[in-house]
Design a protein around this nucleic acid. Structure first.
Lengths: 208, 208
DNA sequence: ACCTTTCTAGCACAGCTGTGATAGAAAGAG
DNA sequence: CTCTTTCTATCACAGCTGTGCTAGAAAGGT
């Protein structure tokens, strides 16, 4: 039944090569030829799996977003509604969740790097606009979900405006990722995670 | 004494055209031909004022950074050391200063937009690396200066770690600018400024 | 008048891009 | 075996890029 090569695996191989090129040389230089070379394929072979550059880019970006989304959903499921947990445990779960969005190791560094190039390109590339907007809105929705569950569990400092705090925390995560990717010497992984933790600690209710 | 055209003005004209192209079409599509067309010049004329593309880009980016830096320095001078001012006045000065870095009107929106494309490109373009790093470090130094002056004036909440707060506020400003530029429907100017003000208010000492 | 410098305009070339088209190899089905 | 589908490989072409080069116009100094 199966032919010699698994097409799905082939596509993954190409997408991985694309990500390596983007991380190393930037989205701008991720031409079909460069990606084919990186994947060890002939450009003709590559084009057998992706009819056009647009299709490759679209598939690749969607793959990455799906992968990260999957991880986030898994963590959300693990966390449940955060009710009936100790404050420390709650903080740990929420921190771990949002840390998926920070470049704290090689894998996440690569993801955030690709995502940054991709987001910047989406501003003037109509082919990327929808997905980029989707993910930005998704990130905010995720932060909203996290903070409102904390709020429902009574874990937030009283007197906070939820929407305002959602915007602030989302911007913080975005900004930390941006600097950590572009200027890792100015913000290493430890400082990056530390800033997030400090912020979450400040949002938490006092006592206990 | 003066020839027919002022070379300096000509260069400014070209740089302005470059910025318009970058804002409209992205840095990627800001080719010499596109910039020359936008400026209403022949590419040959453009190349009389900028020998190479690298020279144009370097000059343009440096111009923009210098312009913003100038504005910031002027505001710093106006603000003085923040000592002996009412808390409200201090907050007003500091907010106005940091708002120079947010895309709150067309001018700043264009600046932050260009700066974002430029920063993203600097990750893989050696020609941009130094200046991009300089400006990122400069932004952090500015935030450090602001917060430490507030601290010296006793205007900060006690118990704050200065360096940690500098990282947090810098990331917040970066993140707000990022989203406001890429997804203005998710974060308009009012929300952007509001988030900054809320954060600064939270850093401020209570009482007064 | 002439000369020099400044400025504008354009051509040509090599290098890259995505993509259409073609052709042959590989591999399984009948 | 033959036939078909899948896959690999390559050529060709138009379109863009930065840049070297040339030539003429424009303008001011002498």
């Amino acid at each position: 039944m199966p032919k010699r090569v698994d097409p799905e695996e082939r596509r993954r191989l190409v997408v991985d090569a694309l990500f390596r090129v983007v991380v190393r040389d930037g989205l701008q230089r991720a031409s079909l030829r460069a990606v084919a070379d990186e994947a060890g394929l002939n450009i003709g072979s590559l084009r057998h799996y992706f009819a056009s550059q647009a299709e490759l880019m679209d598939f690749a970006m969607r793959s990455m977003v799906d992968r990260v989304t999957g991880r986030l959903l898994r963590r959300i499921e693990e966390a449940g509604d955060l009710g009936g947990l100790a404050a420390g445990e709650r903080l740990r779960l929420v921190t771990g969740l949002l840390e998926e969005l920070l470049p704290l190791d090689d894998r996440r560094m690569a993801e955030v790097t690709v995502f940054l190039d991709f987001s910047a390109a989406s501003r003037t590339n109509p082919a990327f606009r929808d997905l980029a907007h989707e993910t930005a809105a998704g990130t905010r929705a995720l932060v909203h979900r996290v903070l409102s569950r904390l709020d429902a569990a009574g874990a937030l400092r009283p007197g906070l405006d939820l929407d305002s705090e959602v915007r602030r925390l989302t911007a913080l995560v975005d900004g930390l990722g941006l600097t950590a990717v572009l200027h890792p010497d100015l913000l290493d992984a430890r400082a990056c995670a530390g800033a997030l933790r400090a912020h979450l600690r400040e949002l938490a209710a006092p006592e206990d």
